[in-house]
C-alpha cells in the first residue's frame, strides 16, 4: 500500500514563486519581441552527415564529417571533475569520527603537539 502523493499546499509559502513567474513573463516578453529573421535563413546540418559521430569525433579530437573544434582538453578536465565529485561525495558521506580527529592546526598548544600531529585530517 503506497501513500498518496503529497499535495502541494497552496498557502503562504508559495509566495516567493511570484518572482519566478515574473521572471518568466519578462523573458517571454523579450524573446517574443526579438527579430530572428536572419537566424532562420540558414540553419540545420548537412543531410547525409552523422551528427552523433561528429560529436564523438570532436570529443576525442579527430576529424569528422561535420568539422568542429576539438574538445579533448575539456573532456579530460570533465573526467577529472567527475572523479573529484565522486570522491567528494564519498568523503561527505563518511561518518565523522567521534574521537581522535587530530586538528590540522592546534592553535599552538605546545612542542609535544608537533610529534603527534603529522598529517592532520587526511584519514
Amino acid at each position: 500500500m503506497t501513500s498518496r502523493p503529497e499535495r502541494v499546499p497552496f498557502d503562504r509559502r508559495l509566495l516567493p514563486g511570484i518572482a519566478a513567474i515574473a521572471l518568466f513573463a519578462l523573458m517571454a516578453a523579450v524573446f517574443l519581441s526579438a527579430d530572428t529573421a536572419t537566424l532562420v535563413e540558414s540553419w540545420g546540418f548537412p543531410q547525409d552527415a552523422s551528427v552523433v559521430a561528429s560529436i564523438g569525433a570532436a570529443l576525442i579530437g579527430i576529424e569528422s564529417a561535420i568539422p568542429t573544434e576539438s574538445f579533448v582538453v575539456a573532456l579530460l578536465i570533465i573526467a577529472i571533475a567527475l572523479d573529484a565529485a565522486l570522491d567528494g561525495a564519498l568523503m561527505l558521506a563518511k561518518r565523522d569520527e567521534e574521537s581522535g580527529g587530530e586538528p590540522v592546526a592546534d592553535g599552538g598548544r605546545g612542542p609535544h603537539s608537533d610529534a603527534e600531529t603529522g598529517t592532520g585530517g587526511d584519514r
Binding site: P16, A19, A20, A22, L23, L26, A29, V30
Partner: peptide, 17 residues
C-alpha cells in the same frame, strides 16, 4: 536568499530591457 536574488535579478533585467 534565492527569492531575494531572483527579485533583484528581475528588476535589473527589466531595467536593462
Amino acid at each position: 536568499n534565492a527569492a531575494l536574488l531572483t527579485v533583484a535579478f528581475v528588476i535589473l533585467l527589466a531595467f536593462f530591457a
